Simulated scan of single mutants.
Amino acid sequence: MDLNTITAVAHPQTRAQLPVWTPGDAWLAGGTWLFSEPQVRLTRLIDLTDLKWPALAITDRHLSIAATCTISQLDALTCPTDWLAAPLISQCCRAFLASFKIWKTATVGGNLCMALPAGPMISLTAALDGVCTIWKAGGGEQTISVAEFVTGNQSNRLSSGDLLRQVDIPLAALKRRSAFRQISLASGGRSAALLIGSLDSADVLKLTVTASTVRPIQLSLPKPPDANALRTAIAEKITDDLYHSDIHGKPFWRKHMTLRLAEEIRAELLDATPP
């Protein structure tokens, strides 16, 4: 869709060249949502592609994912064999249920900043203990976990003019055993519940609940729980007001599926038999 209110497009190549943020500005990365509907309040786009951030970088401590990394670039990553959680990358990329055109354009950072409950990059990076680096509008940086970055349906921690630079995933999280569950009301529909569980070397079960809730919810259970303990922990952590409601699923059903998928994950990771 043409954005006929845009009068200027900035192309900064360094952080120092980022223009002063003014009302009517918008960051442009993939633009798959930005160009999908009228944006009558916008007058200038700030194109991030000329910053040429490396899409992916592996250090001795982290996998760093640039905010401008596309879904196709992330999915194409060749992972070391000891990254037991590597299948989550492909599983979450495919939770988009999007065309190859979207895959080649949509960005990881855009999915996080949109903060939709069903955002699969939120699911992936939150479950793997991802930490956001934010370039503050007034200078300096802020780091915050992905689970805390997303605060609700289309709500996040960014202040006006702030820019999400990257998400760092600890290598230790990528080496945990993991399990993935996702469900939609219809084939090809938006995720109504997407849960990821992981088990570390100390047998701590970590469960990340997304899509069924308005924001990511995480539970950490040091003592491997039985089915009743897990159900109780979820009920205490996720109150009824946190379950999302829209045409893709009502809260009661999302709650039911959250409990069901969580038990499947518990059983898979702990080699138990679901009741």
Rank of each mutant, 00 (worst) to 15 (best):
A57V: 09
W27P: 01
G24S: 11
A86I: 07
P54T: 10
L51Q: 08
L45C: 05
L48C: 12
P19I: 06
I71F: 06
L74C: 07
P54N: 12
I89G: 02
I46D: 01
E37R: 15
D50M: 10
I71D: 00
W83D: 10
C69T: 15
D25S: 04
T68M: 01
L51P: 02
H62V: 04
D47M: 05
D47N: 14
D82G: 06
R44Y: 05
A76Y: 01
W21F: 14
W53P: 01
T59S: 15
I65Y: 00
Q73T: 12
T59P: 06
Q91H: 13
L56A: 09
A67W: 03
T32V: 11
L48N: 00
Q73E: 15
T78Y: 00
L28N: 01
L51W: 14
C92H: 09
A95R: 05
I71T: 13
C92M: 07
A95Y: 00
R41A: 15
T70Q: 01
T49R: 15
P19C: 10
T81I: 05
L84I: 07
L51C: 06
C69D: 06
W53R: 14
V40T: 14
L74F: 14
T70E: 02
T78P: 03
P23H: 08
L28M: 08
C79W: 12
W83A: 10
V20G: 04
W27Y: 15
P80S: 10
L45D: 12
R61T: 12
C79F: 02
A29R: 00
Q73M: 05
W53K: 03
I46V: 15
P38L: 07
T68F: 02
T68E: 00
I65P: 00
E37Q: 15
L56N: 01
Q91V: 02
A55P: 00
C92D: 02
I58G: 04
P87N: 09
L42E: 03
T49C: 07
R61Y: 05
L77P: 00
E37T: 13
L84T: 13
T43W: 03
I58Q: 13
D47Q: 05
P54K: 10
T78S: 14
P54W: 04
A26M: 07
W33G: 06
L56Y: 00
S36T: 04
L77D: 04
E37V: 05
L42I: 13
S36K: 06
H62F: 14
T59G: 09
A26H: 08
W33Q: 11
K52G: 02
T70W: 00
A66S: 15
V40D: 14
T70A: 00
A76E: 14
V20F: 05
P38Y: 05
S72M: 04
G31H: 07
T78N: 11
T59V: 09
P23L: 08
A85I: 08
T81H: 12
T81Y: 04
I46L: 07
L63T: 09
W27L: 01
D25G: 02
I46R: 01
L45Y: 07
E37N: 06
T81A: 14
D60Y: 02
T78K: 12
W83C: 08
P80L: 04
S72T: 10
Q91N: 11
T32R: 01
C93A: 10
A55G: 09
V40C: 04
D75S: 12
I46A: 05
Q73C: 04
